[in-house]
């Protein structure tokens, strides 16, 4: 599914190296987690994969089902099946959540040569999926993320994920700013989307989220590299001992 080889990335403006050769493979149907201290490059990895401006790839490759991601525009990556759930979802006043969702769904369908969803079919689908995430009709009508609480914003991200049905989902610190109940709701939403054909890359600081979204593999990232890979027990180790030991090991 997702294959990253030797990925090196600089910050465009500052000539600063952030990713220093990342190797990572997420097979179809698997959930991989990336943990790491602040500034290790986790969020940069998610932005580079989804095509945000401001980063320069200086080496390596990233492919989704064999297709080169790094050459594509962000919207093409989305249509190819990549989805990033943002750490800080953006507020867009004046654009209704429904309008936004429908524009996105139909733009992707069009890019893939599929027919656009009719207004009726779209409405039916979005209502059903919103209900599972406890997103009410009022929230769907409001402008995108405007006035949403932290939990509402994250649930809205998962609703977008559910509607767009991507193959490869990247969750960038989806647990940040969530209380326990909100985290459980979001995790349930993610777990409902787990399937054989869909992979997840869950980026988080804490083991807590991984109690709810159980990963197959855990990677530890530090200083722009994956320094250790293991099973779910690796997350527990980090929770108990912090990153210092692992980083010392690496050094």
């Amino acid at each position: 599914m997702l294959e990253i080889k030797g990925l090196k990335v600089d910050l465009e403006d500052e000539d600063k190296s952030i990713l220093k050769g990342v190797d990572l493979t997420v097979p179809a149907g698997k959930v991989h987690a990336i943990m790491g201290p602040n500034g290790s490059g986790k969020s940069t990895l998610s932005y580079v994969l989804s095509g945000k401006d401001g980063y320069e790839v200086t080496g390596g490759t990233a492919t989704l089902d064999g297709v080169d991601l790094l050459e594509m525009e962000p919207e093409e990556r989305a249509a190819a099946g990549l989805f990033l759930a943002f750490q800080y979802p953006v507020e867009i006043p004046g654009v209704g959540n429904m309008t936004f969702l429908r524009t996105a769904v139909n733009a992707q369908r069009k890019a893939r040569g599929q027919e656009e969803l009719s207004a009726g079919d779209f409405l039916k689908e979005v209502r059903a999926k919103a209900k599972d995430l406890q997103i009410d009709a009022e929230m769907l009508k409001r402008p995108v993320n405007v006035g949403f609480s932290g939990g509402e914003k994250k649930r809205n991200e998962i609703l977008q994920m559910a509607m767009l049905e991507p193959k490869m989902c990247i969750l960038d610190e989806t647990d940040s700013g969530l209380d326990v109940d909100a985290m459980k709701l979001v995790a349930d939403g993610v777990n409902a989307l787990r399937s054989e054909g869909r992979s997840f890359l869950v980026i988080t600081h804490y083991q807590r989220l991984l109690d709810h979204i159980k990963p197959d593999v855990v990677h530890i990232m530090a200083n722009g590299r994956i320094i250790k890979t293991g099973g779910p027990e690796l997350a527990l180790e980090v929770e108990n001992n912090g990153y210092a030991d692992l980083m010392a090991e690496e050094a």
């Binding site: 989804s50 095509g51 945000k52 401006d53 525009e73 962000p74 919207e75 990556r77 989305a78 249509a79 989805f83 990033l84 943002f86 979802p89 953006v90 867009i92 936004f100 524009t103 996105a104 769904v105 733009a107 992707q108 890019a111 977008q160 767009l164």
Partner: peptide, 11 residues
């Protein structure tokens, strides 16, 4: 905001 929309597939 532009990146957010584009990352959802909006041209």
């Amino acid at each position: 905001a532009l990146f957010y929309l584009r990352s959802r597939g909006v041209p």
